[in-house]
Design a protein around this nucleic acid. Structure first.
Lengths: 254, 254
DNA sequence: CGCGATTTTGAGCACCTTCAATCCGTGTGG
DNA sequence: CCACACGGATTGAAGGTGCTCAAAATCGCG
């Protein structure tokens, strides 16, 4: 069993994600038997493409990815951003995925053969449970974004997304307690996530900057007035489940 | 064990959903021990409200429901429609749900205590697995709708939603092979699902009617030219996974 | 028949888009 | 060291899709 571990580029021992998500529920022997493979993906490259069959699920160790769907004429919708600690690609199943996943920055990740993980889940209720928790959390985020795209103005959407990313980063890296974030996305990425044009995202960010709520440049975002950003986003900071700084994942089933 | 079954208004024996979704994975003894309760909800009433804790998950037996999120100022986004056979309310977990669920028509359903279902899932990998499958399917639908709201025009959105509902109904009730659907929603509901105003939904439906693609009235929708509806929606009927008439659920993990 | 809810239609407006040009920072090659 | 190219950010002007406000028509229902 254990010699299989030598295949692993990023050894599970010492892996920063060893205690997170799916990996938390697996023993070292499980890990080895499943055949996890570490990999690095350069910025801009697809982990898997729309319409492609991908037999792996991915655990992001470092870097950012995004899930996207393309329409025939090239319009792109970004469905989700994946940060370190996120688990990507569970849904595509055996058939062709209707969305793709692309690296925003250089990404290092674990590739886990889906069918082996699912086989294991058949004998490990805790694992299957963890999968439910993960997918349910993703679904909640998708629902929140639906509300943003369907019913919020451009200003509200931008503020909402910035807050979401802000807190997702902070939860993962509480030591980065400052309000300055490195977000490796272009304004075009934000536009495709928000259902806007890059031009209008630019103008909207400009408004937030002029109002002194944020500052940005060089891939860095500085949240100057989080409280006002909540106001603008139309989110009640007190009742918002994920706004509570470095806590547990937003959704805990059971 | 079995006397608990007497508490069940809608007995599981003979239940049309006995072989569907979660129920498929449960024995009759499981059913009894879990304490399922049948219930009827009148049209317009909430199964659970936004901000409320709801200890049950629901299996829709008959009628339609919708999940929705309200903003402070009353703007409403419909996140999902629930049809007979759908499983609703898994996500809210122990904490307050950020969305509500309301009956569109008179609905009969099974209410299942969430913690009991999840406790059982700890010992029944098949059940936990089925939950993953269900939530993953919901997530896929949420992603598709995100693309519609973010990147499709009003005409494309309306066509997309009609097709989705059309095929979801047909999959559940293949005998209703005709293209006439009873959809118990107002144009305002469609608007709130599509991120549009009721007025503009009306005009858009009018365009589709004028073009001879659909006809409607009295809560009935008649799909006159499905093929053209696919064109307008920007969906390739051949590669679309859920368009394949009365097949299995769109997503099969493993 | 009359009331409320829903659908339909009209006119004007606004948010966001489209098209286009410029600016800026970075990397590359002469 | 500078010219150049390139991707991204920024800004301007004009146009359109979808919104707002408002009223009329239609439908369901008591």
């Amino acid at each position: 069993m254990h010699q299989a571990a030598s295949l692993i580029t990023y050894g599970c021992h010492g892996c920063p994600m060893r205690g997170c998500g799916v990996c938390r529920t697996l023993s070292n022997a499980d890990m080895s038997s499943i055949g996890i493979v570490g990999r690095a993906v350069p910025a801009g490259q697809d982990l898997f493409s729309q319409g492609e069959r991908c037999g792996d699920v991915f655990n992001i160790l470092d870097g950012w990815v995004f899930l996207y769907e393309l329409l025939e004429d090239g319009r792109r919708q970004i469905l989700q951003f994946g940060l370190p600690g996120d688990f990507i690609g569970l849904r595509p199943s055996g058939r062709a995925s209707f969305f793709g996943a692309q690296a925003l920055s250089r990404v290092s990740l674990c590739a886990i053969p889906r069918h082996r993980l699912l086989d294991l889940a058949r004998h490990r209720p805790e694992l299957a449970f963890e999968l439910v928790r993960i997918v349910a959390s993703e679904e909640s985020q998708a629902y929140e974004r639906l509300t943003a795209l369907g019913r919020k103005t451009a200003l509200e959407r931008v503020a909402t997304l910035l807050l979401e990313l802000f807190y997702r980063i902070r939860r993962r890296a509480p030591q980065t307690a400052g309000e300055i974030l490195r977000i490796p996305v272009t304004q075009t990425h934000l536009a495709d996530a928000l259902g806007l044009t890059p031009v209008h995202v630019n103008r909207t960010l400009g408004v937030l900057r002029q109002r002194g709520v944020i500052d940005y440049g060089n891939g860095l975002f500085h949240i100057l007035a989080p409280h006002r950003l909540f106001e603008i986003a139309g989110i009640d900071a007190d009742t918002c489940p994920w706004a509570g700084s470095e806590e547990r994942p937003p959704l805990s089933i059971h």
